[in-house]
Write a protein that binds this DNA or RNA. Structure first.
Lengths: 260, 260
DNA sequence: AAACCGTGTTCGGTATTGCCAAACTCCATA
DNA sequence: TATGGAGTTTGGCAATACCGAACACGGTTT
């Protein structure tokens, strides 16, 4: 049993997204199916604590700076960021490609750290913070090492929609791709998520040998796929294992996890 | 008039900090002065929405990944990050020093973007997300251009506590330092906030000529202060003005703001 | 200029919900 | 085995949240 008014307030916060960063009282009221005075009271409370902010001209609301503040506090206390930040930065430096760390959460990947080399503009594609698993190397690197039951459950819930012309949309093809991922030890994203961007991803395991996150490097296809792939993958795998060991993982346990 | 239970829930979230990332029911109950069943109901609701997460072993709670997700969404929609991210990265590249963007909010500076050059380890000092204004270049760069009344108000509320041996703790000394900041156009932090770290900061103005944020470069004193300072400051000022112009600022208005 | 429409905001009565004392469970410690 | 402290559950009561009605405001249409 939860507190209804807190439920409602948090649901209001969850309405804001990268595609809808600004919302009015009426929009929120319609989305929630609640009368406007009800919404107004909740929004006023959220605003008074800095969780929402109202633009005085348009009267629209957006997420408040308190969210940013807390997000930064959290990012700094996530273990994967604490143990993975240094190795990820070294990877960025040595490969000249963007590096991402992600956590497996609610059957998707939440990007927790994003590092760009100096040579790449930070005005990056809007990817994340949550990424679908089936069409990203971060996601496929994790799916490949999840128990079969969890993969089946995932496939039962999420349609394999085409995002680009190379997105894998056939269930059997995806399972084959996951098999290839296990054989190689790393996942490949051949512009399956964003046109013009290819990635190599590797899983990060915890002390129990379960995949809890992943790390990827990404860039234009000509810099990631082809001749350089094997060398880049080697560096990536070493980094992933390095981070996994900080998470308590011991080599040999990944194979066990895959057989469950 | 606000919604009391939402007030309480948000206050619970605000208890978590970099120094207290994990809290139990009893700790929260004591901090809030509320009975444990009351706290438990609110915490359970926050947890069910992903705003808090409970560690099953220790029973302690910490901020949930939903916070990270929303923080990332917000960071991407902040105008200062949108218009300042590229210029800030170029500054990082050309100076080889860490760059920060910040917003003036609630009489302190909220760091909204932090960029490291490849040569600097991301395992950085825990600075921010909120920084006190009187002992940081980000803050002093803004204080210097605020209306005198707002500076007086700030000084009336916040004691100038010594953080390091070089922190400015005397009111008259700070006002003189702000005057020097205006004369130069940029602020200097001579290890006033963190020992071993010096910074140069410049204000970012909006269309009305008001300082809404700032940008800084930072590193070891020997790389920031001394011979290089003038050249670094020149680059920083150009970048700050560049970003300000994207925010709608027109040259000449800063002087007007300082005279209010 | 006046009327209309849609959004945001305020007010206050009602009943639903949140609150919290009491009690319980669990685990670590003496 | 007993004790103490933390976390969790239960249920009665009254405080609070809810929301219909009304209003304010600004842009658009007539």
């Amino acid at each position: 049993m939860s507190v209804q008014s807190v439920d409602r307030a948090l649901e209001i916060l969850s309405l804001f997204s990268t595609t809808s960063p600004r919302l009015g009282i009426t929009e929120i009221s319609r989305a929630m199916g609640l009368p406007k005075p009800t919404v107004h009271g909740l929004v006023r409370t959220l605003t008074s604590h800095g969780f929402l902010a109202q633009d005085l001209e348009s009267k629209k609301y957006s997420l408040g700076l308190k969210i940013h503040e807390m997000g930064t506090i959290l990012a700094g206390s996530l273990r994967i960021n604490q143990v993975g930040g240094g190795p990820a930065q070294m990877l960025t430096r040595s490969t000249g490609l963007a590096t991402r760390l992600g956590i497996w959460d609610q059957q998707s990947v939440l990007v927790t750290l994003l590092l760009f080399p100096d040579t790449v503009n930070v005005l990056y594609h809007h990817i994340g913070p949550r990424i679908q698993a089936y069409c990203s190397s971060l996601g496929k690197a994790i799916l490949a090492y999840l128990p079969r039951q969890e993969v089946e459950d995932y496939l039962g819930k999420y349609p394999l929609s085409a995002i680009t012309t190379t997105t894998i949309t056939n269930r059997e093809d995806l399972l084959k791709d996951l098999e290839s991922t296990r054989a190689r030890g790393y996942a490949l994203d051949r512009e399956e998520c964003i046109s013009g961007m290819s990635c190599i991803g590797a899983p990060i395991f915890n002390y129990a040998g379960a995949p809890v996150g992943s790390i990827s490097i990404s860039g234009p296809p000509d810099q990631v796929l082809g001749d350089r792939t094997a060398a880049l993958a080697r560096e990536l795998l070493l980094t992933a294992q390095h981070i996994s060991s900080f998470m308590g993982w011991r080599p040999g346990e990944a194979a066990k996890a895959a057989l469950v």
